[in-house]
């Protein structure tokens, strides 16, 4: 360890103290919200049949853990999300490479891609059900459609921004366009691909939930829509809480991958 000056020690201590305060306040905020929610339900300020309450959510979670059904629903949503995420990532990279390889194709398809990207994909869901049926296929296609066009466009733009001098370098070393792709564009785009993955995982989850609302008998999206129809608000709230956790875990997974690669 290097010798640290007093000023440096002071600075480090201040920063650490600040971090601890932030962490403590985060937990406090969470606890305060829970307490306020539970308290106003107990005091009858809100109707816990409609707004539920932390204790009712916990009870619901315990009963669904008991019969194992919560693992089934969470697992299904997770599997569908991961499947569509991998499809989107693969299709995004492949599509961007294809568009880069053929500038003509890229220019021809541009307006279509832009239009498909900005189209609200929930509008497609009913058609998908008619075409593909009430099953997992519909859900995965819905999720892929939410993220894939943006992913292709982002990566293609990233490839197009490559320094022309780096491409000249490859040519001056006797390389072809294939080498430009494998030695410059793909390795140079790793940070972009990962930041794109972070966006995609969120979008895939959106797509899966839309799909499950309409075409599922399993999954967290199904639990939410079913729970609201039969007025089991505890089940709805619990599913949303689990969904938050799933989001956080998936996002952290990619952040971990990012740190691994650095």
């Amino acid at each position: 360890m290097k010798q640290q000056t007093i000023a440096q020690q002071e600075y480090v201590r201040k920063q650490k103290r600040r971090q601890k305060t932030v962490a403590a306040l985060r937990i406090f905020l969470f606890a305060a919200l829970l307490a306020a929610w539970e308290g106003s339900a107990r005091l009858g300020l809100i109707d816990d049949f409609i707004f539920s309450s932390p204790s009712r959510v916990a009870a619901c979670l315990v009963s669904m853990t008991g019969d194992g059904s919560i693992f089934l629903h969470t697992g299904v949503t997770l599997a569908e999300t991961l499947a569509s995420f991998f499809l989107v990532t693969a299709a995004g990279i492949l599509g961007a490479v294809l568009l880069w390889a053929s500038p003509d194709l890229s220019e021809i398809l541009e307006p279509y891609l832009v239009m498909l990207n900005s189209l609200p994909k929930s509008a497609l869901a009913p058609i998908l059900i008619v075409w593909l049926g009430n099953n997992v296929k519909t859900i995965i296609v819905a999720a892929v459609s939410v993220a894939v066009f943006g992913s292709i466009l982002t990566l293609r733009n990233g490839f197009a921004c490559a320094d022309p001098d780096q491409i000249r370098l490859i040519a001056s070393l006797g390389g072809t366009r294939r080498h430009v792709l494998t030695k410059v564009l793909l390795p140079g785009s790793v940070p972009l691909i990962i930041s794109n993955m972070k966006v995609n995982i969120g979008l895939c989850l959106v797509g899966v939930i839309i799909g499950e609302f309409l075409a599922a008998d399993k999954g967290l999206g199904y639990l939410i829509i079913y729970g609201s129809q039969v007025f089991k608000m505890d089940m709805v709230v619990m599913s949303i809480v689990i969904l938050c956790l799933v989001c956080a875990v998936l996002y952290q997974g990619i952040a971990l991958l990012e740190r691994r690669i650095r």
């Binding site: 780096q166 001056s172 030695k183």
Partner: peptide, 27 residues
């Protein structure tokens, strides 16, 4: 013919050895 461009364009995702071997790798 060896062509050395204005900027060095060493790739950060490769080590120095991998960078200087890039031409050999391509060929």
């Amino acid at each position: 013919i060896g062509y050395m461009l204005q900027k060095d364009h060493l790739f950060e995702w490769r080590s120095v050895l991998q960078n200087v071997s890039l031409g050999l790798e391509i060929q």
